[in-house]
Amino acid sequence: MNSTNSRIAVAITVNGTAHELQVPARQTLAECVREELGLTGTHLGCEHGVCGACTVLVDGQAARSCLVLTVQADGATIETVESLANDDTLHAVQQAMVDNHGFQCAFCAPGFLMTIKALIDNQAVLTKATLREELSGNLCRCTGYASILAGAEAVLGLTGESNA
């Protein structure tokens, strides 16, 4: 454990800004964005990869930032919840959640928003049922999910069809 304090060079781009960092090997990407970069919108709910609150996009794909070491993200492009809104204009997924009262305490919200953003960006082909599966890696303890699903269905254009 003498290596605890040794630091490793990492180059990452977060929300469009390139960073050259020296980080401890054991630092997770979640700790990096929250503590090194001050982007506290990404939340840690369980730190063992179950709750999904810490979901960010790594090279455009959803990933749990508590299960990615910063050193593994070397060379990667990271997007966090802070990247979604453009000045005062909310991203479509944020607006859909506001319109549908998606969240309550909203601690889980950044994870859901980034998971749904990846579905939008990757043009996922979904039904209401498969949408539930896509969101089942994100836990919410407040809402019972109906409002989050409503918001996600709205932004993904799944409002018309039956719940099959």
Binding site: L39, G41, T80, V98, F103, A106, L113
Partner: peptide, 9 residues
């Protein structure tokens, strides 16, 4: 919501 959904919470 505007605060909580933009990471400003």
């Amino acid at each position: 919501d505007p605060r909580l959904l933009t990471g400003e919470g």
